[in-house]
């Protein structure tokens, strides 16, 4: 449980703070501008991309073959921008984890692993791994919204607290999901093409 808490902590030095999960592009287009539109964004992100990631974290925690999971998650992530964001966050998390929790299972991870696999290996209880992953799927974009849109941190925190993160984590433990997120994929690709100042890597 402690490992899960440390990974979900925004002060964990895994480099997650440079990713907005599509929020920066959505905000730049005016799709997210206030608390109701942020709630809608985060809810959609949680039950789509969040469920997918959490399912793979749970599967990795159950001890399933990591190379197979890596290839299956690639097949479920058609957007190269999304694949790179997931692997960059996996890389960052792995760097910190090697110092904190060295283990053989960490060494068994493929090169530049997707983040959910790293979470699953570190948090070996499937539900806790899924919960950590689902929470991270919304906590990063939520804090990005505070920074980018100047929203009230108390209001944003209340939105996150009201999201069905535990339900999604429970569902993620049942079967390997394959839910696509077409709009998030398009936002991620457009974010990379956007010229001018960007605060976040994704």
């Amino acid at each position: 449980m402690l490992t899960a808490l440390i990974l979900a902590d925004s002060r964990f030095p895994g480099g997650g703070h440079v990713h907005s999960g599509g929020l920066e592009e959505a905000a730049a287009r005016g799709l997210v501008s206030d608390e109701p539109s942020l709630r809608s964004f985060l809810h959609g992100r949680l039950v789509g991309a969040g469920l997918l990631a959490a399912g793979f974290a749970a599967a990795a925690a159950r001890g399933e073959d990591l190379d197979v999971l890596d290839a299956e998650l690639d097949a479920r992530t058609p957007s190269p921008a999304q694949r790179e964001a997931s692997r960059a966050q996996g890389r960052g998390m792995l760097r910190a984890a090697r110092r904190a929790w060295p283990s053989e299972r960490l060494a068994a991870l493929p090169r530049d692993p997707h983040q959910p696999l790293v979470i699953g290996v570190l948090v070996d209880d499937p539900f806790e791994a899924a919960l950590t992953c689902a929470y991270l799927a919304v906590s990063g974009p939520a804090s990005a919204a505070v920074r980018l849109l100047g929203l009230d941190p108390f209001g944003v925190n209340a939105i996150v607290a009201g999201l069905p993160v535990q339900d999604v984590a429970s569902r993620a433990c049942k079967e390997l999901p394959a839910l696509g997120s077409p709009a998030l994929d398009l936002l991620a690709e457009a974010h990379l093409r956007r010229e001018g100042v960007r605060l976040f890597g994704s």
Partner: peptide
């Protein structure tokens, strides 16, 4: 070997309308 595996779910207004769903 898997190349693409993608499920699209439509018909839930809160997800269809979300900028992270079908916008």
């Amino acid at each position: 070997k898997p190349l693409l595996h993608q499920q699209l779910v439509v018909g839930s207004p809160s997800i269809d309308g979300s900028p992270a769903g079908l916008a």
